Computed example of a mutant assay.
Amino acid sequence: MTRVAGGVRPRDALLTAAVLGATLLAALLLPEGWRDGRPLDGRGAALLAALNLPLLVSGKWPVAALYASLLPQIVYHALDYPHDAAVVAAAVLVYRAARGVSRTTAVLALTPVALVTVLTILLVGGDTPGPEVAATLGWMLFAAVAGQAVRLHKAYLAEVTERARRAEHTREEEAARRVAEERLRIARDLHDVLAHSIAVINVQSSVAVHLLDARPDDPATKEIAEPLRTVSTVSSTALGELRTTLDLLRGNDVDRNEPAPSLDGLSTLVTNTRASGVEATVTEDGDRPALPPSVEITLYRIIQESLTNVVKHAAAPHAWVRVEYRPDGVALTVTDDGRGTGSGGSGYGIIGMTERAHSVGGRLSAGPRTGGGYQVAAWLPLSTVEGS
């Protein structure tokens, strides 16, 4: 809230000016038959301004402003100036005082004000001050009740908002707890089943390679040793990536210095694919730019998954990977000349690749080719915002 000179808020200054202007105009311009008391002169106008001035600070110190207005009000009414002209300022001050404090404090603060007001009316009133006393107490009570009602309504809204905030916070905590539990469950299952199986494959293949290397004179061992050596290397890499995944699932710190998968590893993917019996080739068109890390990792994983699907499901003798670097993004196609099956029909390979492409603002399509075989096509923009 912007302040003006002396710490007065602009809305309080506007309220004071509006009330003072209205009361002065009412006291000066209303027909004489509509006004009570003596005509307003310079002294009366000064007193009227003095009893309105506390409105300037009534938003910050409502009770103090109400009491500051009492003395000029007493003098104003005692001199028998138009009494109705002072009612608006007094009503606003009572309303603000009641709105800004508790019910008990409001009663304690307003009771002396009511007594002083009634006493003033009795001293300066005519022969029948009863109706004037009743009218004065009536508007004071109305203003006080209105102030308390507004205060209670605001308190109720604040309580409802706070309850909603706490409920939302509780739901978020519960959701986070469930996610953490699910991550731990997945990590345990991966460790107990997948990691153990890959470790057994790695150990057995390494032992087999060692035994076959011990028989270098047997020509048949060379043909067997090379695929086993590929199995040992790939399973060792898979174990390393699985351990990193398990650490992330468990919320543990991982070694950020370990190199992330990148396009520099395409030659390894091609070598492993060829060792599996598929003649794979990679073609890169254009100069490779400095790709955002998320785009490069996504590109590598899509190629990796596509070649894996070719080996597992396509029964293809050949696979071609083409990466085209354009000014605004990267176009990727992975095609084969197999039986036109990309994921075996029941796995999550295509779904995972599609989700990866969408995560960086790209798109992916996959399906059989018209002339035979299968194709995966992806477009990844270079304008990806990291962390989005």
Rank of each mutant, 00 (worst) to 15 (best):
L212Y: 08
G138C: 08
E173L: 14
L242N: 14
L212K: 04
L246P: 00
I224Q: 12
A180R: 15
L248M: 11
R188S: 09
D189P: 01
R188L: 08
A175I: 12
P219I: 10
A164C: 03
V207K: 05
P216N: 04
A144I: 00
V145T: 14
R229A: 07
E181I: 11
A144W: 00
V200I: 05
E226Y: 06
Y156L: 09
R188T: 14
A220Y: 14
T244C: 07
N202L: 02
T230G: 09
K222A: 15
M140E: 09
A144H: 00
M140T: 08
W139N: 08
P219A: 11
V150C: 03
E181S: 15
S232A: 14
G147W: 00
A199Y: 00
L246M: 11
E182K: 10
A180E: 15
D218A: 07
E173M: 13
V160K: 01
G251N: 13
D247V: 05
A144G: 04
L211D: 06
R185G: 09
L212Q: 04
D189T: 13
L141F: 14
R166L: 13
E168V: 01
P227Q: 05
D189F: 08
P219K: 06
R250A: 11
V193F: 11
T161P: 01
T245N: 02
L152Y: 04
